[in-house]
Computed example of a mutant assay.
Amino acid sequence: MPSARTLLNRVAKLEYARQRPKSRIELAYGSFDAFAEQVRGEVGAGALDRTDMLGETGDGGVLRCLRQWHEMGLV
Rank of each mutant, 00 (worst) to 15 (best):
C65R: 08
G60E: 08
C65W: 07
P2A: 08
T57L: 06
L74F: 11
T57F: 12
D52T: 06
I25K: 00
S23M: 07
D59S: 14
D49H: 02
H70L: 09
R24Y: 13
A17W: 02
Q38M: 12
F35V: 07
M53L: 01
V39T: 04
L27G: 09
L66Y: 01
D59K: 02
F32M: 07
V62N: 03
L63I: 06
G30C: 11
P2F: 12
A45G: 15
H70Q: 14
G30V: 06
I25P: 01
Q19M: 03
L48S: 01
L7N: 05
S3Q: 12
T51Q: 05
H70V: 10
S23W: 00
L54C: 05
R5G: 09
T6G: 02
V62K: 01
L66F: 08
G60S: 11
E26V: 09
M72Y: 08
R18Q: 15
A4K: 15
V75F: 13
H70N: 11
V39Q: 00
L27M: 13
H70R: 10
D33T: 13
L63E: 00
A47M: 12
D49I: 02
W69I: 00
T57N: 12
R40E: 07
A17P: 10
T57V: 06
S23I: 08
R40K: 14
A36F: 10
M1E: 12
C65E: 15
A34S: 11
R10W: 08
L48Q: 01
L74N: 10
V62D: 02
S3D: 11
P21M: 12
A28G: 03
L74H: 14
V39K: 05
G55Q: 01
D59G: 09
T51A: 10
E56S: 03
A4W: 03
R24K: 12
S23V: 08
